[in-house]
Simulated scan of single mutants.
Amino acid sequence: MSRSFKVGVWRSFMEIHHAVLGEIERKLSDRHRLSVSEFDALVNIPLAGTRLKELQERIVLTQSAVSRMADRLERRGLVTRAPVEGDQRGAMIELTEEGRKLLRAAVRTNAEVVESMFTDRLSKEELLALHGVLRRLKPEENPAAT
């Protein structure tokens, strides 16, 4: 198999990812006034809440970017922030009822786009095969990649 074919496959994968992510971004913004990063943050806040530092590790943004995002989400009434006892710099962040409600709607929007632009275009067999391939490529499931 030629190098150009391999790079072409990768390029196609990136183009599909870009198109689907772009549509998710548009729909989340239009329907819920959320960016993909804000959606990602909301999805990664457990029901019991989480420390801001742990959220930053889950969504791979800088500490200052997560803090600014938390400020925006707090101003919208989607999260609350509380100090962590014994840690002057630490903060706990929790979804409010309004945040949980918006998150449920945004999760449905995300799923609609993924289905319409990606999974509904593949057969069950193709999805199963793709799932197997992608599992092998994920670093945490591929010992050779670490």
Rank of each mutant, 00 (worst) to 15 (best):
E23G: 02
G86T: 06
L95F: 02
V20I: 15
T146D: 09
Q56E: 14
A82G: 03
G49W: 11
A41F: 10
S116R: 15
E74M: 10
R76A: 13
H131I: 07
R33F: 02
R75Q: 11
R75W: 05
I93W: 03
S29Q: 11
R72V: 12
L61Y: 14
V133C: 00
N110I: 09
A129G: 04
V133P: 00
L103T: 04
E57C: 01
R68M: 07
F118N: 07
R104W: 10
K6C: 03
A70H: 02
I16H: 08
V113D: 00
V7C: 01
E141T: 08
A144K: 13
S64H: 06
L122Y: 07
V133D: 00
Q88E: 08
F5L: 15
T80K: 12
R51F: 05
T96H: 08
E15W: 10
R3F: 12
L28N: 01
E115L: 12
D87G: 05
E25C: 02
S123M: 01
H32M: 11
Q56S: 15
E140G: 02
I59K: 14
A70P: 03
P143V: 03
P46C: 12
N44H: 15
A91V: 14
A129T: 12
L127Q: 13
E98M: 12
G99R: 03
V79Q: 07
N142T: 01
L73I: 05
V79K: 08
A105H: 12
R51Y: 03
S12M: 15
A70R: 11
E97Q: 15
L128Y: 02
K124G: 02
A91E: 11
R31W: 08
E23C: 05
G132I: 14
L137D: 01
I93F: 01
I16N: 09
Q88N: 05
M117K: 11
H32C: 12
V114D: 07
F5N: 07
R75Y: 04
A82E: 13
V113Q: 01
A65L: 12
S12Y: 14
S4A: 07
T62K: 15
V66C: 15
V84R: 08
G99T: 06
G8C: 04
I45D: 00
Q88Y: 03
T146C: 07
D40R: 14
G86M: 03
P139A: 06
P83W: 00
L103Q: 07
R3G: 09
H18F: 10
P139L: 06
A19C: 10
E15H: 13
P46K: 14
S29H: 09
L127H: 03
L122K: 08
L122E: 10
